[in-house]
Design a protein around this nucleic acid. Sequence first.
DNA 1: CTGAATCCCTGCCGATACTG
DNA 2: CAGTATCGGCAGGGATTCAG
Lengths: 129, 129
Amino acid sequence: MAHQTVGYPPGLPDDPHAHVEVPTPACPVEITLAVLQGRWTTLVLRELLRGGRAYSELRQALPKLSDKVLSDRLARLCALGIVERDRRAGWPPQVHYALTTRGQRLGPVLQAMWDWGVQGADRSTESRS
Amino acid sequence: MAHQTVGYPPGLPDDPHAHVEVPTPACPVEITLAVLQGRWTTLVLRELLRGGRAYSELRQALPKLSDKVLSDRLARLCALGIVERDRRAGWPPQVHYALTTRGQRLGPVLQAMWDWGVQGADRSTESRS
DNA sequence: CTGAATCCCTGCCGATACTG
DNA sequence: CAGTATCGGCAGGGATTCAG
């Protein structure tokens, strides 16, 4: 099934993905979650949302991030069509990374998560259905 | 650091969380991601967004989900103030689960993820910064 | 009915060292 | 500079079993 009714407390529109019963790529939310999953992934995306960066610049921005994980994240995001790799000729060799337009569309998603994280600090209100 | 600039391609507003360099609870996006992380979590939330459910109803809706994981998810979401537990007297013993208002605020987040997952199917467009 | 406890296994993440 | 190779530790998740 899928998370289609999200945002509609009582009533829910019909959606072909609305009956997913297992966490598979069939559910759009799971797809997005799969992209975002993995430690450091969102931090890398944040950096790239601020503009394209060279590998060394990313390393500099995220000092605690090892080569292996950074490479893994970038390779995975490239494979997913989120990030684009640009190997530039010359010396020293440099590789530039930038978000594809598909990747840039993740902006609103991260923004929504940001907003919830900020206001979520207060857990004062409660309600039941 | 944090993902504050999310959604603002070139320019980025100043934010105290904007300089997080390690994935810690200091970043709102990481907070939200932590809440959503874990297999099955979003599926459980989807079910609850459609209205409060009894434990048995959740099990029925997610047949492939084991008791342990469902219990873990619910307990964790309760601890986070996302879900509220309502132990009802009588026989057979039944426990009702519902989202708190804080939990319901996750609706827009999942909606954004849903939207991206749906349109993300096409990776035709690309661009560089 | 509703969970908590236990066991095992898998995959991720980090550190280190090495190559084009 | 920009990665890849390898190894080990550890936490997450599934199945099964037991308890309130």
